[in-house]
Design a protein around this nucleic acid. Structure first.
Length: 178
DNA sequence: CGGTTTTGACCAGCGC
DNA sequence: GCGCTGGTCAAAACCG
């Protein structure tokens, strides 16, 4: 079955490229982020279960990793080419256009919703989703020609977790990777 | 002034 | 075909 993993963060990455203090207190490494396949839904079923809804990603997306942090997060899921690498293809693509897209989901314990992952994102939508009181936010990579999207929502079962779903592969390096 | 966010409208897919 | 839901668009507002 499909599984995804994310390249470990470059260790020298967090160098506070800005002075935003809240963002600098990164406290986890992403190295143990690995996206297991569907039989690793150890922390619950939220991936597929949250909906009998129409087009959820239950079939094509993998499990989550739990990360516990107390504050802001910053990670970089790649350094050389900026791509959330995927291992197997996502066969179940009901994505209409038939474009290849990898999807990686993180489940992160965080107080803040949007995590700085080294890329620049532009918000383009916000939706309330069924069965959750929380809103789901939609972001696009603001780099030109890059169509990577990400979705950010709160775990409906445990609102202290944030679920971030990346879709697509960056065609450029992270602006903060060096 | 340029880029980003906000927010309602619009659209497509799915189940009934 | 209709309604529901999730995803996207785009114009206006906002912000540095």
């Amino acid at each position: 079955m499909d599984y995804y993993y994310v390249n470990p963060i470059s260790p020298n990455y967090y160098g506070a490229h800005d002075d935003d203090s809240a963002m600098n207190s990164m406290s986890f490494m992403i190295s143990d982020f690995l996206m297991a396949d569907d039989d690793d839904h150890s922390n619950q079923d939220q991936c597929g279960s949250q909906s009998q809804s129409t087009t959820d990603e239950s079939s094509e997306m993998a499990a989550f990793s739990d990360v516990t942090t107390t504050q802001a997060h910053r990670f970089n899921n790649n350094n050389n080419n900026g791509e959330a690498s995927r291992k197997c293809k996502n066969n179940g693509s009901k994505r209409s256009k038939g474009e290849v897209n990898s999807r990686v989901a993180f489940r992160t314990k965080s107080e803040i919703d949007v995590m700085d992952d080294g890329y620049k994102w532009r918000k383009y939508g916000k939706k309330s989703v069924k069965n959750t009181p929380y809103l789901r936010n939609y972001y696009k990579c603001s780099s030109e020609g890059c169509s990577v999207k990400k979705r950010v929502e709160r775990d409906r079962d445990d609102s202290s977790y944030v679920i971030t779903t990346y879709e697509g592969i960056h065609n450029h390096a992270s602006p903060f990777a060096y």
